[in-house]
Computed example of a mutant assay.
Amino acid sequence: MKKENGGFSLRCLRDFLCGVLIGAGAILPGVSGGVLAVIFDLYRPFMELLTHPKRALPKYWRLLIPLGLGWAAGFFSFAKGVSAALDVSAAATTWAFIGLIVGTLPALYREAGEQGRTRASYVSLLACAGAVFGGLFYVSRVLSVHLQPDFWSMSLSGALFGLGIVVPGLATSSVLMALDLYQPVMDGLSTLNAPLLASILPGMALTMALLARLMNWVFQKHYSVASHGILGVVAASTLVIVPTEYAGAGEAAASAVCAGIGFALAFFLGKLDRRTRSAQR
């Protein structure tokens, strides 16, 4: 009984922490909440909850509560923190999440190969990596489109957040920054601005509802190809956000420390996940 209670407590802690990071990843430039969900082995349960709630709720209700609480805490509370951290040092903040992603890549690679690897799997990896790298580079470095923060642009922001959750690897915050919408969205989320939330949340929910079944079908029918495509997306989106400019040696050193902290956090979550799975056996 003690072992079962210990395993349940560890699972709740792990799911809450993962929820916090997924929520934070949804708003951090260059990071996809969907990718973090895949990395933490939460993407498929989440998609099943969206596509078949009656069947999935009895199976995943214990997961849903700590994960949902963590996601809300990460998404809303990190909005103010991310804005402040980016003002202090955009490079160090970005490197913290780069360290987190790099630390989880080995686990993601193992997960992608669970059902074997074929030539199509590697083609998918390379094709997705090339497409995402080229697309994000074009949006962030070449495209010059700027929108005003009105109802329609905020609805678009919500749809992009939904895409980032359902389609792993889509770094929606980078697109918002390119469109000059990121700072208004962060300011509104940090103050829980009611009109802004009324614009963002419906677009997010509608996008997830419309695309959930499609993504679930892709993973059921073409798991290896889809998983390796996600691996390519993760690698490419991480390369795109690597900072190239620093205020000085101090910021470069702080960036290295933040990357190490992110990597250590990924290691801790991986170890916690292994202990959780062992306790459930």
Rank of each mutant, 00 (worst) to 15 (best):
L201K: 10
P149A: 12
G113T: 05
T191Q: 15
A171D: 07
S199K: 04
F263A: 09
A209R: 12
F8A: 15
Y60E: 07
G81H: 07
D41P: 04
S144I: 12
S278M: 12
S121M: 05
S255T: 14
A159T: 08
A85I: 06
T94P: 13
G34L: 03
P195W: 04
A91Y: 12
G250N: 06
L13P: 14
M215F: 14
K2E: 15
G116C: 11
K2V: 15
V242P: 15
P106C: 00
Y60T: 08
G33F: 00
K80T: 08
L67V: 05
T51L: 10
F219W: 08
P29D: 01
V38F: 11
L192N: 13
L156V: 12
A252F: 04
A279Y: 03
W71D: 03
G70A: 00
S121N: 04
M1V: 15
I230A: 02
V88K: 14
R281M: 13
L211D: 12
K221R: 12
S278E: 15
V142R: 12
L160E: 11
G74H: 01
G134S: 14
V132K: 01
G33L: 01
C258A: 15
L57E: 10
V35K: 02
V233L: 15
R110G: 13
L192I: 12
A107P: 00
G164I: 01
A24R: 02
Q115C: 11
G135M: 06
A120V: 09
A253E: 08
E48T: 13
G6Y: 10
K59S: 07
R274E: 12
V88A: 14
Q280C: 01
Y43N: 09
V139K: 11
L28K: 02
G70N: 03
R277G: 07
T172F: 02
A252L: 09
A127W: 04
A279D: 14
L143P: 11
G74E: 07
